[in-house]
């Protein structure tokens, strides 16, 4: 088996604003099963970071345990990474973000890591609206332990061994909206055209951005009867919108059909250009979004695209009113306010 990727690249590989090619954003060669959806998501992250001209050293990847949580090795090899304890990625991400607010945080997790062992951490990181991109690579099974049903496996879905899942699935996107996530999207590993702009928008969103990405497990959950197989997902996918992410505020020249196009301005002035295919639902209205998800569930559809976004809620740093600089850039004058200030503070308690 090849464990090293050849060093040659296409001599005409495009360069981004920093003069980097895709190569500078790649990681090691994947050791996941051939054809794993997770590898496609990794490639989408590489593509998004390349296109956004993110400086690799300003990104941190934090993960828990599982196939999904191995993937940070396979993308952004020049960025920071922390492979943490099972289900505890949100704690580490919270700590990292508190210490350095200037980085882009990718939390990478799976359905087991988030919906089972890490559920407690998952709900609380949402509640706090931590400024991060939280990606769940959702394959509906425990691939690393040979494919047992996970908590996101749909009721009635058939496993590779032939048993039917008797339990209700946890719908992570609905749950995230319910708990107050400020950016919720769903996508499919096999649809990079949708996934890449979603990741870019999520990176620019200030607050908790949740991406639930269905990612087929080719080895244990790609059989007929599974609701997370390539074939099933392709047949039941319902793309709700096409999405462009616009990093700056240019004039948008492409004309879209009247009344179906919405622009959502993010905190930093970037834009999401949303071209809706479904008109009866508003991505900026929580009730409407939850409603759309529930209706899709009844119809056995997998709703993909941007489901819900709220740009008004404060992220954790704003809520806590933290200092504007990352901790590692505080100098002595900022860390030691001086005797006068100390006395003034002490006076306040007398």
């Amino acid at each position: 088996m090849s464990y090293l990727k050849p060093l040659f690249r296409h001599p005409k590989l495009p360069k981004n604003k920093l003069g980097y090619t895709l190569k500078e954003y790649e990681g090691s060669l994947s050791t996941l099963c051939a054809g794993c959806g997770h590898d496609s998501i990794s490639a989408a992250i590489v593509q998004a970071c390349f296109e956004m001209s993110v400086e690799p050293h300003k990104v941190a990847k934090i993960s828990g345990i599982g196939c999904s949580s191995k993937t940070p090795t396979y993308f952004l090899g020049n960025s920071h990474g922390f492979n943490s304890v099972h289900g505890r990625m949100p704690s580490v991400a919270t700590g990292a973000s508190m210490a350095n607010k200037d980085m882009v945080y990718f939390g990478v997790s799976g359905d087991g890591d988030s919906a089972s062992i890490g559920m407690g951490q998952f709900v609380h990181v949402i509640r706090r609206n931590l400024n991060m991109v939280y990606i769940v690579m959702n394959n509906g099974c425990y691939g690393l332990t040979k494919g047992q049903d996970s908590a996101t496996a749909d009721q009635g879905s058939k496993s590779k061994a032939g048993s039917i899942n008797p339990f209700q699935a946890i719908d992570l996107a609905s749950l995230a909206i319910e708990l107050g996530a400020s950016f919720v999207a769903q996508s499919f590993s096999g649809d990079k055209q949708q996934l890449v702009p979603l990741i870019k928008a999520a990176m620019h969103h200030k607050g908790f951005a949740f991406l639930n990405v269905v990612s087929p497990c080719v080895t244990f959950n790609n059989n007929p009867g599974s609701t997370k197989s390539y074939d099933y997902v392709r047949e039941h996918i319902e793309a709700t919108s096409t999405l462009d992410f616009v990093p700056e505020m240019p004039e948008i020249k492409a004309s879209y059909e009247e009344g179906k196009s919405t622009r959502i301005a993010l905190h930093d002035g970037s834009l999401i250009q949303l071209n809706k295919l479904e008109t009866d639902w508003d991505v900026e209205d929580r009730i409407s979004a939850v409603n759309a998800l529930q209706q899709a569930r009844v119809k056995n559809e997998i709703l993909t695209g941007l489901i819900y976004v709220n740009t008004e809620w404060k992220d954790l740093h704003e809520t806590l009113n933290t200092y504007h600089k990352p901790l590692n850039r505080l100098d002595e004058s900022e860390l030691c306010p001086g005797e006068q200030n100390l006395q003034a503070i002490n006076e306040g308690y007398r």
């Binding site: 690249r9 496609s40 990794s42 590993s189 087929p216 080719v218």
Partner: peptide, 10 residues
């Protein structure tokens, strides 16, 4: 699954 497209070094 796009795996070949993602992995191709060139």
């Amino acid at each position: 699954c796009d795996a070949c497209m993602d992995v191709c070094p060139t």
